[in-house]
């Protein structure tokens, strides 16, 4: 294409470019610039007086040698992957199970009820479960019923040994309905003629689920794995709301540690170095997952 034609085309679309301007400006100020600023700060040490000092890779070294960050990494992976797996399994089971229900009222009420918590903030869900798991809460009420009198209430939220399980359970409680909705939307779009043909050939309903429904859900599963692999590293709100000093050691994740270091303790250099490392890990992880699931071939 010659320069003249290109120029004429650009002029034809000048209004479109003008529309793009505010959008570009927003992304530069609130996306690209903070990213660059974070990377620059990760090589500097801020001081109380005067300009920050360039310290090379010192902050990165400190992050990698800091046991708090190592623990936070382990917590992030265990709680994140645990939540994702439970959520995935229950999302799939709920979707498959609802598909077999004929009654529309049952269907829509179960679907609404499982999806609803996904709309609620962690401030709501966390507050709710903190109360349920408190000594005077419902969980202890159930145990009391089971074990009878002489039972001493368990302080669930102050027991490090339950902390991760609680985070995984409440995370899946909140999120399973969302995955179920994604699966249901995919199941609805499967061509019903395939089921009819299979049923005429004598395949039982269970067989149809295993040989038609589930294979047809593979693309959706890939989407969910890609979504989930990003979500694993991005769980701040839950820990922010539900964490407390007795259980932090078991659940404090990278994002939360970065927040406390950077915003609360003013260790900007350390926190931005950690954030940059997590960012690189996120990009690597998502490109690996995308490649493994052949996501881009299916969706672009």
């Amino acid at each position: 294409m010659s320069a003249g034609i290109l120029w004429r085309r650009i002029r034809k679309y000048k209004f479109i470019y003008a529309l793009f301007l505010p959008i570009a400006l927003y992304f530069i100020v609130f996306s690209y610039y903070p990213l660059a600023l974070g990377i620059i700060n990760s090589f500097r040490k801020s001081k109380l007086i005067g300009a920050p000092e360039f310290v090379g890779l010192a902050n990165y070294k400190e992050v990698l040698l800091n046991p708090l960050y190592a623990d936070a990494f382990v917590n992030t992976v265990i709680v994140g992957v645990g939540t994702f797996v439970v959520q995935f399994i229950f999302g799939l089971l709920i979707a498959l199970s609802l598909t077999e229900i004929k009654s529309n009222i049952v269907k829509s009420s179960v679907q609404s009820v499982t999806y609803l918590p996904n709309l609620l903030s962690w401030a709501i869900v966390g507050g709710m479960w903190i109360k349920i798991l408190a000594p005077s809460g419902m969980a202890n009420g159930f145990l009391q019923l089971l074990k009878g009198s002489g039972f001493t209430p368990v302080v669930f939220m102050a027991e490090p040994k339950y902390a991760r399980a609680i985070m995984i359970f409440t995370g899946a409680w909140k999120g399973a309905g969302y995955f179920a909705v994604l699966f249901i939307a995919a199941i609805v779009s499967i061509n019903s003629a395939i089921y009819e043909a299979a049923s005429i050939d004598g395949a039982s309903r269970i067989k149809q689920i295993f040989y038609i429904t589930i294979p047809n859900l593979v693309p959706t599963m890939k989407v969910i794995v890609v979504l989930g692999s990003m979500g694993v590293l991005r769980n701040f709100d839950q820990i922010f709301v539900m964490g407390n000093s007795t259980i932090y050691d078991k659940i404090r994740n990278l994002l939360y540690l970065i927040y406390t270091d950077g915003i609360v303790n003013f260790k900007v250099g350390l926190a931005t170095a950690a954030a940059t490392l997590v960012l690189i890990a996120t990009l690597l992880l998502s490109s690996i997952v995308r490649r493994m699931t052949k996501y881009d071939e299916t969706y672009n």
Binding site: M230, L255, I258, T272, A275, V278, L279, T282, S286
Partner: peptide
């Protein structure tokens, strides 16, 4: 691909 949560300090 730039997670807003990770640029929080710069934000």
């Amino acid at each position: 691909m730039i997670p807003g949560d990770l640029t929080l300090i710069s934000i």
